[in-house]
Nucleic acid binder design. Structure first.
Lengths: 356, 356
DNA sequence: CTGAAAGCGCTAACAT
DNA sequence: ATGTTAGCGCTTTCAG
């Protein structure tokens, strides 16, 4: 006698009050056909006579049968889930990338296993191993830890499972990469400020992650070539993604704003910092953009919420997510990897203007 | 001959350049033991002689063996992944809940399958079915669609898989629930405004979701009992979670601010709206909080980024996520469901003050 | 302490 | 068009 006899009529399982899930065997029995036939109507990949199909579908309905994807994938050695690893959901920047990834995955019939490494290199490795263990067909990593990227960890992992890096500071062999050209984006912002007359321009940046380095380089390059570079115009606010980044920015700018010899503009490495600058300017009695200009970076919603709306560099996070998925699917199918660099655009808003 | 002979030395698979993952059989062969023994050292659940263990562990290391959790769980009929369904990641509110959920799941050895229903009831049902199909051991749903909650869908689903609802407008039989007492939170904000002298208080709300209804009721109740209620003081800005909610708020408040007979404060249903009010006030030449007070709701980072920082009602999203997971684990283990209502707290900041 | 073998739910030959 | 059956990789009795 089968263990699941009478299941449809409400047999309970394991004392948790749940009805045991019907299996393909239950459906086959109820419909009076073989499991193979049930499989065929579920997957629609082989011909089945109309009246048989009907019987099976009825049984499926009555039993509320849902195929067990784990079993299917164990059998076919396919996997329709992919792993995604992000440093934090706390930052809108990553939230939007994840949004883009999920949308594209869903559109392609994949599910997303999402883990958060909390800016912790050890945890990051654990996350990746766990995902491999769960048999994902690939992994997307957003802003991975420099330490891991530098070590052999990802070089080894990339031989086991398709990997796509989003905004990785370094390039990994045998993996695909997508990133924004943050160097060019920075130049865009600086050129804009320069064009509208600013010469003494602060750089507000953080100290974690490879992106800040790249932006700092762009700044130095741009300013140097115009004989405008001074190291003291670089303001490092520490962790640029934490909740109090805006406040720290504001505090660090106190006393640097307003007197005639000081800067007339600030170029920020993200929108939160730009917010902090906005607040500092207001407290210093400077009106933006008439007396002081500010640019942000990322084009998160925040840049539109505040007043004045912030001129910022759009990183198009949704697209970043979409491309990451596309590259992953490519790699899963063909094994080939590819590097894509997305262009940044300057989004002109109200926080920048000619000096009056 | 086994298909995987020589795998460790670099045999390639399926033309994608990946090394085939070693299985338990490979490890057993390499170590010269049975698969049962390998299983035992991997799981550490049965005694194994020290020297055997060592041999096995060496083989595991050399082969970079990672156990296949799908196979394990198929066998044990357990599952260490849970599904999470949210309306959108775009809203910091949900991002923080997800953050809390993921952290707690991780701490308990679970993985998170995250899907986004994009404010679409049909998609929501599809997501849930997909998760069941993937054999999750439970599902957490944040702010589910009222339509589905009202219909029999979740009543049926709750018999198949443990369900926990976060901020559900309705209660589902056989499922756990956790939510904030948004009614009480609203009263907190209103009392604060009232206490510091405000009588003509606007309510700024949206029109989607059950939470707005509850807040509207609280507002009506509070104002009515003091003879202060007028319907025209309720401002509905439409979709309160979309990217332009702040702008729409600002536009709708134009002309309603500044003249002596108009309101002196606005009580908003989320922080984004409060932001919009802040901007409207500034453009109307009103200084906050000296001439006009504003309260937000949620206590998202946004409320701290802007100037003045917004007095708001803390919804403690991280805790909401933690409790959701706790309730789910409880339900998985015992089958019992429970309803938890979290208290809200007023976070006093700079956007509210006595009328001067 | 270790091995052999059954079977989780499913798919895909291979028969019929 | 449909049924039979051999596994996918793993855990877990049951024997030794």
């Amino acid at each position: 006698m089968r263990k699941s006899a009478g299941k449809a009529s409400g047999e309970l399982r394991n004392s948790t009050g749940l009805v045991g899930r019907a299996t393909i065997v239950d459906v086959a029995q109820k419909a009076g056909v073989s499991v193979a036939t049930v499989s065929r109507v579920v997957n629609g990949n082989y011909p089945v006579r109309e009246c048989t199909r009907k019987k099976v579908q009825e049984a499926i309905g009555e039993l509320r049968y849902v195929p067990n994807i784990q079993a299917r994938e164990l059998n076919t050695r396919h996997s329709s889930s992919v792993g995604v690893v992000v440093p934090s959901f706390y930052n809108m920047y990553f939230a939007e990338i994840v949004d883009g990834i999920e949308e594209m995955l869903h559109r392609n019939g994949f599910s997303m296993l999402l883990t958060c490494m909390q800016n912790n290199a050890v945890l990051e490795r654990e996350c990746v191993r766990n995902l491999v263990s769960r048999n994902v067909s690939g992994i997307i990593l957003a802003s991975p830890d420099t330490e891991n990227v530098g070590a052999e960890f990802y070089d080894l992992t990339s031989r086991q499972v398709p990997l796509v890096f989003v905004n990785s500071p370094l390039s990994i062999s045998n993996a695909s990469h997508v990133s924004n050209d943050e160097h060019a984006g920075m130049i865009l912002a600086l050129e804009h400020l320069y064009d509208i007359g600013h010469r003494r321009i602060l750089l507000v940046c953080g100290d974690n992650g490879g992106a800040y380095l790249m932006k700092k380089m762009a700044y130095r390059e741009f300013m140097d070539s115009r004989g405008l570079y001074t190291e003291e115009n670089i303001i490092n606010i520490g962790d640029g993604n934490s909740i109090d980044a805006a406040e720290r920015t504001e505090r660090l700018l106190e006393g640097r704003l307003g007197d005639p010899s000081s800067a007339t503009a600030a170029c920020c490495c993200n929108d939160v910092m730009a917010c902090g600058v906005l607040n500092a300017a207001r407290h210093a009695g400077l009106s933006v953009p008439e007396q002081f200009s500010v640019t942000g970076f990322d084009n998160t919603p925040l840049s539109r919420y505040v007043d004045p709306e912030i001129t910022t560099v759009d990183q198009n996070m949704a697209k970043l997510g979409h491309v990451a998925v596309k590259l992953l699917l490519e790699k899963i199918e063909t094994g080939k990897d590819r590097n894509v660099v997305l262009e940044n655009h300057l989004v002109m808003r109200k926080s920048t203007g000619f000096l009056s």
